[in-house]
């Protein structure tokens, strides 16, 4: 390697992305906190960062928070796993078979674009408030990004690359392993990033309507009790999870698909 020596750049320049991003997050919370120096604070209507943080730490150490998260995590795992399996399978067929794609695209678009959470009460009537009801809501919300992204990935496969592998004596299996899977995988992972956010909405909404435990239930109950510090602490927990999951996937994408960086 004959890489040129990296020119000297300052710490601030090198980490400006993280620094600038962190800066606006900090400003947001400081502004929130500072507002109540000028505006009278009414704990029945709003909370402020220091109180939220106190509640968050308290609930974390009492184990309540982790319990609720675990209760919600189980249906999330089921629903999300089902969404991956079904979404990728349907997406492959829709992308590969042009006519199936034409036939299903409008219908799927309707489902994807519409606020499916509106169906949550119905799902709960059919399947109850247990794991299955919640898992189905999560599935319904997170399956469509997988379908659409997988189909787009399959459609984006370059015919020339298929021909290259075939011309070198590649078998059907080689086509899958060396062209189709590596071509589609990044699309699926990008779909997962969108699906995580939608799945989290699913769990919250499912538990808002009817549940006896879980993080969504906790948020709804603390809201009803005007325990806004605790309610916001639960929301904070969900936000942290959402950020960790989506950023984690983004990080994994960069690590696993270095060749996509330039695209």
């Amino acid at each position: 390697m004959t890489d040129d020596a990296a020119p000297h750049i300052s710490f601030a320049t090198r980490h400006r992305k993280v620094l600038l991003g962190g800066f606006s997050v900090a400003i947001f919370f400081i502004a929130w906190q500072a507002t109540f120096l000028f505006v009278p604070f009414n704990p029945l209507f709003i909370s402020k960062p220091n109180l939220i943080l106190d509640s968050f730490v308290e609930m974390l150490f009492s184990g309540d928070l982790l319990h609720d998260l675990a209760v919600s995590g189980v249906p999330f795992l089921y629903g999300f796993t089902a969404a991956v399996v079904v979404g990728v399978s349907v997406g492959v067929v829709m992308g590969w078979r042009v006519r199936v794609g034409y036939a299903l695209d409008p219908l799927m678009t309707v489902f994807y674009a519409s606020p499916l959470v509106a169906l949550a009460p119905l799902v709960i009537v059919f399947f109850g408030v247990g794991v299955s009801g919640k898992a189905i809501i999560i599935f319904l919300l997170s399956v469509f990004p997988f379908i659409f992204n997988t189909a787009a990935g399959v459609r984006a496969i370059d015919r020339l690359l298929i021909n290259v592998v075939r011309s070198m004596g590649g078998t059907e299996k080689d086509l899958y392993l060396k062209v189709i899977v590596p071509g589609v995988l990044p699309y699926i992972v990008a779909g997962a990033r969108i699906a995580v956010g939608r799945g989290l909405i699913g769990i919250l909404v499912g538990e808002f309507f009817a549940a006896s435990e879980g993080i969504g239930y906790a948020i709804a109950r603390f809201g009803d009790l005007f325990a806004l510090d605790k309610m916001f602490a639960c929301i904070l927990a969900i936000m942290i999870i959402a950020v960790v999951l989506t950023e984690g996937i983004r990080w994994a994408e960069r690590a696993a698909f270095p060749w996509r960086i330039g695209q």
């Binding site: 021909n163 070198m168 004596g169 060396k178 060749w259």
Partner: peptide, 17 residues
Amino acid sequence: PGTDRAMVFQEFGLLPW
């Protein structure tokens, strides 16, 4: 196709990954 022949493709056809 057969491995007795090989092509240098006009559009390269390199696998990006």
